[in-house]
């Protein structure tokens, strides 16, 4: 495994369109639930332990070679909000394009063929990690990090929050990112034996409700 390949995949500048999404932060800022660095950190913590864990486990399972079709159905069942399902598929489609150009392989080609409208992004992320020679922990780390870095950088723009404060919040979350990434990889290994339905399903009601409200806004800065 190449440690540098992990940096390439995890880089926020990897051309997969993630910067257009706030991970629910735009809705939370508008609703007054994120007002500064402390509430941003709490938002990210809640997201990390819910949809973050779920996404990371899906990514890790895909990196281990679990069936992407079964994983995509599991992702659908764990995403009640249609706005979030659409966003996840759009991000998945963009990521599969970037990943095929970066790490050409038959598995990514097959994934693009099977899901012309895009598979859920964590599933694509896991297959991309596999194509890059990375393992389930790597895929889970990429996933949990983007789960918190997305809302943090969005909040810097939305609230004109000091970027140093936002980055410090991410650094304070680092030990929990480690815990969740390893838990996700462990869950993915168990799911290979016990079936993908045993993957984590932690949910965050306000992320789902907020995403639907956000999708109905006439004007917004972020796609989700």
């Amino acid at each position: 495994m190449s440690r540098a390949a992990l940096l390439v995949l995890a880089d926020g500048r990897f051309p997969a369109g993630g910067h257009a999404h706030s991970g629910g932060a735009e809705a939370a800022v508008r609703a007054g639930r994120i007002t500064g660095a402390a509430s941003l950190e709490d938002f990210c913590r809640g997201r990390l332990h819910t949809s973050g864990l779920v996404s990371a486990a899906l990514a890790a399972a895909a990196a281990l070679g679990a069936d992407p079709v079964a994983l995509d159905a599991a992702a659908d069942a764990r995403t009640p909000s249609p706005a979030l399902r659409v966003a996840a598929r759009r991000l998945g489609r963009q990521l599969v394009r970037a990943a095929r150009a970066t790490w050409p392989c038959t598995e990514l080609d097959a994934l693009a063929r099977q899901f012309p409208k895009g598979a859920h992004q964590p599933v694509v992320l896991g297959v991309a990690a596999r194509a890059a020679g990375l393992g389930p922990e790597d895929a889970a780390y990429c996933s949990v990090y983007e789960c918190v870095s997305g809302p943090a950088s969005a909040t810097v723009r939305l609230l004109s929050l000091d970027p140093f404060d936002a980055t410090a919040a991410l650094a304070r979350l680092a030990p929990e990112l480690d815990v969740v990434a390893h838990a996700a990889a462990d869950a993915a290994r168990r799911a290979l034996a016990d079936g993908v339905e045993t993957l984590p399903a932690a949910s965050a009601p306000l992320l789902e409700i907020g995403a639907e409200a956000h999708a109905a806004w006439p004007v917004r800065l972020f796609a989700s």
Partner: peptide, 10 residues
């Protein structure tokens, strides 16, 4: 797990 009562969850 942390954040359950926070701005993303409840």
């Amino acid at each position: 797990p942390g954040g359950w009562d926070g701005p993303a969850v409840l």
